[in-house]
C-alpha cells in the first residue's frame, strides 16, 4: 500500500491538540509506517509557500485543529482544503467551535477592548491591521465577526471532537482513516453519552439545587450530578472513558460536544437539568423557592455551551437585547 501523505494544522487553538498527537506513544510508529507527514507547522516549520506549491489533493488527509477565529485561519484552511483529499476536524474547537466559542458572547470589539486593556498591557495601543515598523509594513489578519467551527468555512469529511482527542480515540481514528476503512462523517463521535462510560454510582435524579463544586466535598464513588454539582456528562458524547469524573472526581465539562446526531448540546442539557432540579415537592413550591432552584444554575449559557456555542442553534450573541 502506498504511504499516505498527511498534514496537521492548527487554527485558533491552545496547542493541546498538537500535543495530543504525541500522546499516542509508540503508536506513532504505526502512524509513521503508514503515513508521511508532509505539513505540520507546529513541528516542522514549513512555509505558506510550501503548501501553496503542493498539487491539489496532494495531501491525503489533513487534520485541522482549533477554531476559526481570524481571517488567517480561514484563508489557511481554505488552502488546505484545496490541497487535501480529506479534511478531519480534529478536536472540539474545529469540530464544534470549542472553548474559544464563548468569545461569541461578546462582539469582537469588546474582546479586543478587554484583551488589551488589562492593567499591565494597556498602553492605549490596539492591534492594527496594518502597521509600520522599521523593517517595513506589517499586515495583521483581523478577527472574524465571530468564532465558527471548521465546517462553516470549508467542507469537513470527518469529525473527531475532544479537548483534546484522547489516545483511545486517536487509535481508532488513525487506524480507520489510514487503513482506508469505510468511516462515516460522524462515526468517530459516540452516539452514547459520557454516562455510558462513567463508572460512578448513579441514582434517579432528584436534585434540590445546583451548587458550585467548591462548596461540596465530592464523594468520588458517586455520580457528581447526584451530589448537586453540574456535570455535562449526560449530554456529552462519550468517546473518552470519562476520565474527568472517574479519575479526577471532576464533573464533565462537556468538551466532546453533543452525541452523534444531536445538534444543540446546551439546550439538551438545559432541558434535562431544568426538569429535575427542584423536582422534589414541586407541587407545593412557592415562587421564591422555585426561583432559587432555577437560579442555582449559575451562568447557564456558559455552563451548558462551554464548548459548543458556535455550532449551536444560536451560535453567537446577536447584539444587545432590545427593549
Amino acid at each position: 500500500m502506498m504511504k499516505k501523505k498527511i498534514a496537521f494544522y492548527w487554527c485558533a487553538a491552545c496547542g493541546g491538540c498538537e500535543v495530543s498527537v504525541l500522546d499516542i506513544d509508540e503508536m506513532i510508529l504505526d502512524v509513521i509506517e503508514k503515513a508521511d507527514i508532509v505539513f505540520w507547522p507546529c513541528a516542522m516549520d514549513p512555509k505558506y509557500e510550501d503548501l501553496e506549491a503542493m498539487e491539489d489533493e496532494e495531501i491525503d488527509i489533513a487534520f485541522i485543529n482549533g477554531s476559526i477565529r481570524s481571517e488567517e485561519n480561514k484563508e489557511m484552511v481554505e488552502l488546505i482544503r484545496e490541497k487535501a483529499k480529506k479534511v478531519v476536524a480534529y478536536g472540539s474547537c474545529s469540530s464544534i467551535g470549542g472553548l474559544f466559542g464563548l468569545g461569541n458572547l461578546s462582539s469582537k470589539e469588546e474582546l479586543i477592548e478587554v484583551g488589551y486593556s488589562t492593567r499591565s498591557t494597556d498602553d492605549g495601543v490596539r492591534p492594527q491591521n496594518e502597521s509600520k515598523v522599521e523593517e517595513g509594513e506589517l499586515e495583521l489578519p483581523s478577527l472574524l465577526h465571530h468564532v465558527v467551527p471548521l465546517d462553516r468555512v470549508i467542507e469537513v469529511d470527518h469529525y473527531l471532537p475532544g479537548c483534546p482527542p484522547l489516545p483511545v480515540q486517536l487509535e481508532e481514528a488513525f487506524t480507520a482513516l489510514l487503513g482506508d476503512e469505510d468511516v462515516g462523517k460522524y462515526d468517530l463521535i459516540s452516539q452514547k453519552s459520557v454516562c455510558d462510560v462513567c463508572a460512578m454510582d448513579r441514582e434517579e435524579k432528584r436534585i434540590e439545587k445546583i451548587r458550585p463544586i467548591q462548596e461540596v466535598s465530592i464523594d468520588p464513588e458517586k455520580c457528581i450530578l447526584d451530589q448537586g454539582v453540574l456535570c455535562m456528562g449526560p449530554a456529552t458524547a462519550g468517546m473518552c472513558e470519562a476520565p474527568c469524573p472517574s479519575v479526577a472526581a471532576h464533573p464533565c465539562v462537556g468538551c466532546n460536544g453533543p452525541v452523534r446526531g444531536m445538534k444543540d448540546q446546551g439546550s439538551r442539557m438545559l432541558s434535562a437539568l431544568a426538569s429535575v432540579v427542584g423536582i422534589e415537592g414541586e407541587e407545593n413550591m412557592e415562587e421564591d423557592e422555585l426561583q432559587e432552584a432555577i437560579d442555582s444554575i449559575r451562568d447557564p449559557t456558559g455552563s451548558f455551551y462551554t464548548f459548543s456555542l458556535p455550532s449551536s442553534y444560536l451560535q453567537y450573541r446577536r447584539g444587545d437585547v432590545d427593549g
Partner: peptide, 13 residues
Amino acid sequence: DDLCSGCKMCISV
C-alpha cells in the same frame, strides 16, 4: 436501546 446511556435523568420525571 442503542442510544440510551443510562444517565437516569428521565426516571424521576
